[in-house]
Write a protein that binds this DNA or RNA. Structure first.
Length: 487
RNA sequence: GGCCCCAUCGUCUAGCCUGGUCUAGGACGCUAGAUUCUCAUUCUAGAAACACGGGUUCGAAUCCCGUUGGGGCUACCA
């Protein structure tokens, strides 16, 4: 690979939120560019004026930045080969169209969508390839005049060459396509804009793209693109069609599978490094057993050879595990900053967090991080610290209503009352004293206190929880528990 | 329907190109145990796969063919 010559692009269309499958595509292009010290280019394919929305362009920027995929050329930062929005490149497409027309490689087609549809159905019914029959290739002047008078809005089609086309794919090897199965396709739509196929090729030429790394769904389109490259007399980029991302049931990942867009995962509190680490392992492998990989390692290890041919299912279980690993390993200050918005969503700290609160919150976050799959789960785990009272589950009431439990609570209360602060050591020694004085230990000792203070039978180690609770709250909860009637 | 791609534990994958070292390795999840006041974490152990059928070969997860299954494309959507 000749470095510095590598130029790859991610070319989403702004017709919706950034899909995780597209994000993976962006990630692989990014890793490839960074690995070979090349350029990663962002191009917005908004030729579908009906469905494209500016709002989604901003979402794409946001999501890519969140994932840490910074681009070297793009609509927002410019570059030598701009503009980078297809809607702003109309003149360029017109110029390229002229080249085709000069060489008699394009023609006007007046077939209506309805006519096309009828012929398509016929072809399928007769067991034939549903391709355009090229019938407008040789229209007489009279026919053209007649169609124009009928007010038909024409399209412009490209004359497909009469020879088979072999796609040399870096992942799949040589794939041959029968030219007879591909009809002359539309390069300019009746709205006057370029079609996807045409715009892609023109842009890849103009932007000097060296490698086209995209989803496998584009493989059958590639012969059309290759024909266009040839028609323009341009060298081909290298193609790599990567496997697709599927839902848990093996069908195309869609809304019925749950969250499918990057912003949803961001909002659920997945960490960008964890998310991209997970995405990288979908359809790619470093070749050894490593799984938790830093961005630099990913860049260093990435190769097209390591890419899988078969499609991969987006499995949330492994993502959760991986995100949990990142959450447990993250610097606590950083994690706390990320966690605070979720606490606020849970109703805590509506007016922000001051410095001393931050310190305390970071201790809480540190205490509960072992339980988290993602940050949005944090309020439910932090509630026992944040709330004034705890709700005692019915199933646990017996622990605080038993005679033994009541004794433990009472003794604990009297010992705590005389103390200034309750830290881990103090709590442990208090428990030791109670154990000696009442001759209780294990569950009999811990459970009444656990239930009184946290409301639940399970949860973090009691001394960790107690050390984070104010003395006032501790006493209050003990009192409430003592007064709790048995139902 | 036609064309194209793909096929290793439930899932992500290593191995396949350059057949023997594969009684097929790792990870998630699952099960059990250890630790612990409990749950989670952590650690240890376990169950779990070469889709099927032919062929080539002394020998096939690895090469070839077929079948089946899955996916994609077949748009004036990208």
């Amino acid at each position: 690979m000749s470095p510095s010559k590598v130029r790859v692009r991610f070319a989403p269309s702004p017709t919706g939120m950034l899909h995780v499958g597209n994000a993976r595509s962006a990630l692989f292009n990014y890793l490839f560019a960074r690995k070979y010290k090349g350029k990663f280019i962002l191009r917005i394919e908004d030729t579908d004026i009906e469905r494209s929305e500016v709002l989604y362009i901003d979402e794409i920027y946001h999501d890519l930045k969140w994932l840490g995929l910074d681009w070297d050329e793009g609509p927002d930062i410019g570059g030598e080969n701009g503009p980078y929005r297809q809607s702003e490149r109309r003149d360029i497409y017109k110029t390229y169209l002229k080249k085709l027309q000069t060489n008699d490689l394009a023609y006007t087609c007046y077939c209506s969508a309805e006519e096309l549809e009828i012929r398509r159905k016929d072809a399928i019914q007769n067991g034939q390839a549903p391709r355009y029959d090229n019938r407008c290739r040789h229209l007489t002047d009279e026919q053209i005049k007649k169609f124009e008078q009928e007010g038909r809005k024409p399209v412009i089609r490209f004359k497909m060459p009469e020879e088979n086309i072999v796609v040399k794919d870096l992942i799949r090897g040589d794939v041959e396509f029968d030219h007879q199965l591909i009809g002359d396709f539309v390069i300019f739509k009746s709205d006057g804009g370029p079609s996807f196929h045409f715009a892609v090729v023109v842009d890849d030429i103009e932007m000097k793209i060296s490698h086209v790394i995209r989803g496998e769904d584009h493989l059958p389109n590639t012969p059309r693109h290759i024909a266009l490259f040839h028609a323009f007399g341009c060298e081909l980029p290298l193609f790599a069609h990567m496997s697709m991302t599927m839902g848990p049931d093996g069908t195309r990942l869609s809304k019925r599978h749950g969250a499918t867009s990057v912003n949803q995962y961001r909002e659920l509190g997945y960490l960008p490094d964890a998310f991209s680490n997970f995405l990288a392992l979908l359809g790619w492998s470093p070749g050894d057993d490593r799984e938790i990989l830093t961005r630099d390692e990913l860049i260093d290890l990435f190769s097209i050879e390591g890419m899988t041919k078969s499609s991969a299912i987006f499995g949330i279980d492994k993502l959760n595990w991986m995100n949990g690993m990142y959450i447990r390993q993250a610097p606590i200050d950083k994690l706390t900053r990320l966690a605070i918005p979720y606490l606020q969503k849970g109703g805590y700290y509506p007016n922000g967090v001051n410095e001393s609160e931050f310190v305390w919150i970071s201790k809480v976050v540190d205490a509960v991080r072992g339980y988290l799959n993602c940050l949005s789960e944090i309020p439910q785990h932090a509630a026992l610290f944040m709330n004034e009272e705890v709700e005692i589950e019915e199933a646990s009431v017996e622990f605080i209503r038993s005679d033994e439990g009541q004794k433990v609570l009472q003794l604990f209360q009297s010992k705590i009352e005389s103390m200034d602060t309750v830290d881990i050591d103090a709590f442990k020694s208090v428990l030791k004293d109670i154990q000696g004085e009442l001759d209780v230990k294990g569950k009999q000792l811990y459970m009444p206190l656990r239930i009184a203070l946290t409301g639940k039978k399970e949860g973090l180690e009691l001394h960790v929880a107690v050390a984070l609770l104010e003395k006032k709250k501790i006493l209050q909860r003990i009192q409430t528990a003592q007064a709790r009637p048995l139902i």
